[in-house]
Amino acid sequence: MTGYIIKRLLSAIPVIIGLSIIVFAIMALIPGDPALAILGSYATPENVARINRDLGLDRPLYEQYFVWITNLLQGDFGRSFILNRPVIDEIMDRFGATLILAGTSLVLCSIFGILAGVVSAVRQFGWTDRIVTFFVLIGISTPSFWLGLLFILIFAVQWRVLPASGMYSVYGGGDLPDLLRHLVLPSITLAIVATGVIARLTRAAMLEVLRQDFVRTARAKGLAERKVIYKHAFKAAFVSIIPVIGIQAGFVMGGAVYIETVFQWPGIGAMLVNAISTRDILLVQGGVLVVAVSYVLLNLLADVAQALLDPRLKS
């Protein structure tokens, strides 16, 4: 098992290097001369050349990448010129908030998605199945940013039961119950699409597994239907759902961009949107890279979890 984990960890390294190259390349492709942007339109050619030399921009791209990645590894992501502070500090401040939001949503969508999918497969073509299928369809067709606004209108404006924005109350609060109250609306909004997707795929996986020969064997043994479905069929289906959850983690982390904006959640997503509007490129670069790498690591975790449950994958 340890061998397998190490192997998977090693295989993530080229992916992360690839990610860093893409992020670097995208930023290097930005049209316009950074030196001109710094000096303004009255710059003399000598000054432009000096700035380029100072920033290392006169060197070939691969050298620039190498310098950039070395700095990254030492925790130097550059400096945000809009916020006037190191990119890494800003990211560190906000990463936790995104992790709390996305993590809660991921847990919610896994639990409810799998439950809904299993129930709907077991009661295939029955009323429960139809209702679940209907809600799943609504879930995956709803723009989450709009749903967030609706939730704010209903729960924060009309009924005044939950806060409309932020992570903690401005006055008082700051404790766990306060955080949880603020977390309810954004995490549910963020989880809804992924819940639909997971429910759909769980239903399909269960139906697929229930047709397998080993399910017939379980029935031929005289096992109760409850055991056939929830032990034999579910375990096999669950193994194939784990990677789906891993992929949904990507959608949840991406969707956080909208939800953080709608609910003014102080996370990386909201930061990215602001940074793009203000063209704070280094901040965008750092934020994208950090989120992308955590996504890769999450998928790695999903792979390991799958191998733990499925002995066939280890050999």
Partner: peptide
């Protein structure tokens, strides 16, 4: 396909954001 895998390694909307960041809104 390695290139495609690389694109898939990004969370869906995040890559779109990065591209918009470069090209401008």
């Amino acid at each position: 396909m390695r290139g495609i895998d690389m694109l898939m390694a990004f969370p869906y909307i995040l890559l779109a954001l990065a591209i918009v960041a470069v090209l401008g809104p």
